[in-house]
Design a protein around this nucleic acid. Sequence first.
DNA 1: CAGGATCCGGATTGATACTG
DNA 2: CAGTATCAATCCGGATCCTG
Lengths: 119, 119
Amino acid sequence: MEQDETIQNECGKTIMAINDTMDILGGKWKISIIACLCYSSMRYSEILKKVRGISGKVLSRELKELEINGLIIRKVLNEGPIAVEYSISDYGKSLKELTLTIADWGLNHRQFVIKGMAK
Amino acid sequence: MEQDETIQNECGKTIMAINDTMDILGGKWKISIIACLCYSSMRYSEILKKVRGISGKVLSRELKELEINGLIIRKVLNEGPIAVEYSISDYGKSLKELTLTIADWGLNHRQFVIKGMAK
DNA sequence: CAGGATCCGGATTGATACTG
DNA sequence: CAGTATCAATCCGGATCCTG
């Protein structure tokens, strides 16, 4: 029984930790944006092209939130015509492994589906 | 420049792979549910308690989607009074590493915030 | 170019009540 | 117990227009 309780507590802690992560990275786009900036720094309009499907309004909101959480850095390169560069922060780099794990699973899942083994 | 293009392509592929994963695991709760069932099989009402904050309606919808995708297994134990047990499938187990990576980052992030280094 | 303001319809959620 | 049905509230994202 003690063993069971230990397992149950572990489970609860894990879920809390997952929630902590999801509070920061939740939503449809943040992980993609982080993964993108892990490859190289980018301008606003470049991210807009890379992260297919995101709208301008949503992108600027997501970038703002990521910046507030210290995961990315916003740097104004030039005023009139304005140019802004976004890059990953040192802290944001701690998410690189996570993004790769997620991408790996997606690749494997695609194979899995193609082979028709999912059913 | 060729090097740059390679990097850009890698980036695009990574983002597509992330989208593939997110199509399956997207949303606020699915990862928590999977993590939960990686610890042990559970009844509907147990999951409801473990995954704090989720409503019954949303839980049953999420469970249905996870089952359709082959990640979890639904087993009726008993009719009247009905009892249902959910468990992780072999395929779902391939997500265990992912859930642990996410939980790890959440734990570290909590430390990071506590130490006030996030600003 | 970067991104804010506004409008708007559709998706998502929570509460509550109900069923086999 | 394990859900389903329903309604109201809300959250979104998209499109469009506007600014420095």
